[in-house]
Amino acid sequence: MSVKAKRFPQRLNIRSGTIDMTHGSGGRAMAQLIEELFVTHFDNDLLRQANDQAAFDVPAGRLVMSTDGHVISPLFFPGGDIGSLSVHGTLNDVAMAGARPLYLSSGFILEEGFPLADLERIVISMAAAAKRAGVPVVTGDTKVVERGKGDGVFITTTGVGIVPKGVNISGDRARPGDAILVSGSIGDHGVAIMSSRENLTFETTIESDSAALHKLVASMVEAVPDIHCLRDPTRGGLATTLNELALQSGVGMQLTEDAIPVRPAVSAACELLGLDPLYIANEGKLICICAPADAQRLLAVMRADPLGAEAAIIGEVIEDAHGFVRMQTGFGGSRVVDWLTGEQLPRIC
């Protein structure tokens, strides 16, 4: 296709160019943006066909589909950016069904004036994340909104995957006696984001835990196909996710505070801001609920994966008509661990 070079006499000015309305108008500028930025970096056969959709064969089994919109401030944060986050987030949602993700799509909403250099950085990071995961971005869409009507860039990603036979993971399957496991330290993502927000400046070495968990899930499912529940504790943190599961399954939970892994920097930042790590977002952790007999085997499998190296059994599912999640505190008392209310705002009192 030697026509290409002639279609766009000048290459995109990535160094100092910005997004303008023409990049979303459907005209030549948009085609150029797609070709020189998205197709170049996401590079795969399906995308290169340049259709408005991707057509592919799927293996037999149950198909899983999940979609996730990503808005985040700041766009670049320690340990990641909106690009890698948008890949990991959707892959994880697909993986939490025990599925093997196959393909991704991405929709970009760009704000007029957004620097092309930043966009390129985001696209490169997204492409790298997809490549590491082995899941290509096969179709996409771009829209531009007027200045002031967006926050730089919003990315929506959708993923499809296949659930292996015999796997039936669902939030309503927690049973009294089941073990509750978490794949590693909690609160890293939320604290990394807060540390980079302008008005809360504190310095820490904490990086976002943003990561794709489907390979970890694959080995877990292989070892124990009858995992009852899997969920990634993103917004609302561990506490809110456990409450969701308790509600869905009609059970209570009993946690042990000392068993929950929290990094020292995360506890310190939370002390400083008056926040509770249990409510801070994660982007590379999962909660697993399984029959007590399977717990040790799963723990071993999780710990063998770098993304689950700090996995721990943090409590058990109990019978409780109220659906309370309770916790034995490190101090020796007990408390209820409730849903997150409102937004986690730093407090003075």
């Binding site: 310095e203 020292p264 920097a265 310190a268 930042a269 400083l272 003075i348 009192c349």
Partner: peptide
């Protein structure tokens, strides 16, 4: 009331009457 937390002074700037404290691995 009055969330307050102990931290160690690691740096002092006399001119602006301010400093940096360390709370475990976090600095502010």
């Amino acid at each position: 009331m009055c969330l307050a937390i102990p931290a160690q002074v690691v740096e002092i700037d006399d001119v602006s009457d301010s400093g940096t404290v360390a709370l475990g691995p976090v600095r502010k």
